[in-house]
Nucleic acid binder design. Structure first.
Lengths: 104, 104
DNA sequence: TTTAATGTTTGATTTTTTTCGAACTGTAGG
DNA sequence: CCTACAGTTCGAAAAAAATCAAACATTAAA
């Protein structure tokens, strides 16, 4: 059974969202999704991390409410929860788009 | 000699700012400053932490560019760098003000 | 010049987070 | 049914962050 817990708009918490965005890998994933819509794990432009580590970061992003999954066959497609974020944290998605990808 | 390093607007980094805001104590301090302007350490509404821990959190906030100090006598007054933040991260200070103080 | 007040810094400890490989789950194709 | 693929979960190890007490610095006041 797939029990997917995604916080509602009112359940989203700014501190948790900031903590999620406070890691360079997660920031990069979120910026990637902000710029290009839906992607599966292999589409995130992150290198040199194992798939279990990537999965861990995705979980934190999902639990904070920043991203949402869509399951299709064996692939998990993720996307920014733009509508929800724009309601809860106006200006945030623009911030993500305006910020240059940090050198890593 | 007091060498105070405060990042310029262009030096501010979204990931670092988010990491700074990702801790509940620091979030509370910043929200406190956003609502009420300048305060010294004893004015931050945080309890149950030692002064050295508080000083540590203040340092992280200052180095991220979120707050700035003003030295007057033996007191250090801190304030949000509102003008700089509004230029670099439009919408951020509103987010801080809109967010209810999280129960701790 | 002592003493008290307001922090900061240092060094050590605890706690949390990040990371990985291995095992596992579910899906699709042969 | 067997195998490959895409990803998650588990358990352990490493790295980073938070925490505190003690020592230090600076200012002001007695």
């Amino acid at each position: 059974m797939k029990t997917l817990t995604l916080p509602s708009v009112s359940e989203m918490n700014l501190t948790a969202v900031c903590a999620a965005l406070g890691d360079p890998i997660r920031m990069k994933i979120v910026q990637c999704l902000a710029r290009s819509g839906e992607k599966n794990c292999s589409g995130f432009e992150v290198e040199h991390i194992s798939k279990s580590t990537l999965s861990h970061h995705i979980k934190i992003l999902r639990e904070s409410g920043l991203i949402q999954p869509r399951f299709q066959g064996k692939e998990h497609f993720y996307s920014l929860r733009k509508e929800e974020l724009d309601r809860r944290f106006p200006g945030l998605t623009e911030m993500l788009l305006n910020e240059p990808a940090s050198a890593e």
